[in-house]
Design a binder for these strands. Sequence first.
RNA 1: AGGCGCUUAGCUCAGUCGGUAGAGCAUCACCUUCACACGGUGGGGGUCAUCGGUUCGAGUCCGAUAGCGCCUACCA
Length: 880
Amino acid sequence: MRNPIMKEELAKRYDPNDFEKRIYDFWLSRGDFTPDPESKEPSYSIVIPPPNVTGRLHIGHALVNTLIDIIIRWKRMSGFNTLWVPGTDHAGIATQMVVERELAKEGISRLELGREKFVAKVWEWKESHGDQIQEQLQRLGASADWTRSRFTLDEGLSRAVRHVFVRLYHDGLIYRDLALVNWCPQCLTAISDIEVEYRERNGKLWSIDYPVAGSDRILTVATTRPETMLGDTALAVHPDDERYKDLIGREAILPIANRRIPIIADPILVDPEFGTGVVKVTPAHDKSDYEAGLRNHLPQLQVIGEDGRMTAAAGADFVGLDRREARKSVLAKLEEARLLRATKEYVNSVGVHGKCDTDIEPMISRQWFVKIEPLAKPAIEAVRNGTIEIIPDSWESTYFNWMENIHDWTISRQLWWGHRIPAYYCANEHVIVSESDPASCPECGSAEIRRETDVLDTWFSSALWPFSTMGWPDDTPDLRTFYPTSVLVTGFDILFFWVARMIMMGLRFTGRAPFKHVFLHGLVRDELGQKMSKTKGNVIDPLDVIDEFGADAVRFTLAVVSYGRDIPLAKSRMQGYSAFANKIWNASRFALMHVDTELADAKPIDYKELRTVERWILSRLNDATRSVNKALAAYRFDEAANTLYQFFWHELCDWYVEMVKPVLLGKHGDEAEANKVRRVLLEMLDRSLRLLHPFMPFITEEIWQKLGAGGGAVIHAKYPVADDSMDDADAERMIAATQAMITAIRNARAERGFTPKERFKLYIKTASDPEAAFFAEHTYLLADLARLDAVIVNATAPADAPHDVVAGYEIAIELPAKVVTKEQIERTQREIEKSRKELDGLEAKLGNEQFVRNAPASVVEQARARVAELRARIEKLGQQ
RNA sequence: AGGCGCUUAGCUCAGUCGGUAGAGCAUCACCUUCACACGGUGGGGGUCAUCGGUUCGAGUCCGAUAGCGCCUACCA
């Protein structure tokens, strides 16, 4: 029974646009991506790294989702009850920024709209644009279960977020405190430490003189941020620094402000070797100064406000000025007072907010934090004891290094789009943290309750993704069946942002690691290894290349290049793999025009009855099958894909198909032999398509439907596994020898300038009768592929025919008389030279007693055999 | 500053247990043969960054050096 949705015949030309959409709809209509709830098979599950809901598919998404889909399809075909949970992330700041930008086009600002209306606008935006990325993933062939798609702001997920927040708060792991945080004056929100990106910048280092009060001494201080001096509340020196020891405890006069500030000793803040050994201390605007301020009980004077403008505390001359203007103004005033001593060029790294590229302002602010150490400890242990395995394992040391030096996590954001923190304040400022909205304050009974306005860091909800998507905190069938998930596939760039936090939260709230393996892939670059960016114009848009080359070629390319930290990607590679798809297409057309698909329903292949050629190709296929399964189990998508490419094109197409043509075209053998060949050819196509399916799902499904699959689909066909009984070393050896002879003859033909029409005679010498019989039997094969008119076994060749030794067999090629050119002589001499060099090396090796004594017997034996072959070869070649 | 990684053909990269250096692309020559010119056949191209060590034997293991990249922390 053929499926009616499929076209009967393969089109002449491979055109992915003709069938990819149709095939995807076919799978969707059958519900092929949804696991069977009744299944007794072992489960296998993956959750998608949720892309930004307003995002558009970029090449990084294409990579990670291709890799996930390869694993999912492989496992599904390998008998697992397989689930891939898709979904999207609300992506707090990023989404808010996108919508704000859209509104700005209409001249509307978020602030004038108000919180409620703005959030409603974002939801509108989400509803109209949110499915775009899922449709794009479908074009890639993603076999995710769309019926289970989740969004981090869904009701269920929101409940999980709230539940986790409340529990962590009551366990003392979430607290609210006044602390120095990273503040983005552009986005007007605090961000966490890891959201700060550091950029190298050419700046200046200014030296400012601070007069010591009641003395004519001057302390010179270097700074990269002179405007912060307005907030200085001390100068610090090292307690052991002899130069300044006597000044400790005295006061300096802060220039411009003319405030007196203490001169303190702080061994942690001050490195006496650096600069002048005197440091200005600005506790409200610098991280290490903040800590020094706490140690020394210094006042915190905020001179820069949340909007990046100077506060009243900065003084009347500066209030309201932007940070940058304030810097110029401060420098001018210092210059005027002749207190600016020197300026030098200086390269330092400046913290910026990655999302908007604005310089971060360290700021003292009341925020919510997660006390991270108690969560990190078990997460470290889980990786250390192997409960979770990070692949490649080189990332484990990075993971440990970060987790062991981790700082508390700032989770509150002064945004509108996100999970609003479930904390409430009563009229008396009592804090109530609760899963449901409280009616009155449990402490004082006040009914005047207002909710916290801050929302949570997006990554807080992402951290719960592996179990929140499955219905947690309820005990659901999905949770029981598919949690913990099997592997997490993602880029190494979000190891800290996401992976580490999922491990911490998963262990804390489910008592189990959220996944067994973490596979970290590299980052896609252009062919020169540069980051892709719109400004550089080197972006490869996955949707464009899918249009151009087809999803299968794009997927195959991504699989092949996937290994390594950086993944250089060029369109030319996709073109190359679309040629491979074309090859698959045409080889299948060839097979289908010679093979009756009814054969598949006939009795299984009897391996003992097969010819050597068929036993050989089955053995080679088995070898490829073994390699592919092994490579996939190790997440070596590149090896798996290369193995299939190599096998299908260069063994199956280049050799096997050519070898069976004489039989299929009726030039050799009888109908019974042809039928055996047809049966095996069909088997090869069937198995190859199944092996290729996870990588190239569309083309394999389209063709496989033509094999008379009884209404089935390759997506649910069984993935081939290696079968030792298919291995055949003898067949491999004899066919390899045959191939080597054919190559040698083709080579001789090309080198001597003969056309394909001119026929030769081949003489072969064998050492045994079975070998002689083999070559006699396969004369047609040699004759057809090497264009010979005779193959003569174990007879004396004419002395003037070129002799050689190939695969251990002495051969001679009798060719029509032709002038021997200088090039041929030189080439033969080069061959002899090469062989002699290798021979000399080997003989020296074998002459070394220690080699013979210490090396394994097989290695010595191999060397001896090679020596014999080389000697014979040199002799034969020399005769010419 | 600390940590991690990389250096192999013109380009981009594989290379398992230490045992005769591989692939794709590019390049050159020949071939429009009845699945495919998105094709076939054959060829050329490498001091495996450098130096030293271990070993019978090193692209592979160890140490150092140089160059490049990334991460983390800090940078008055």
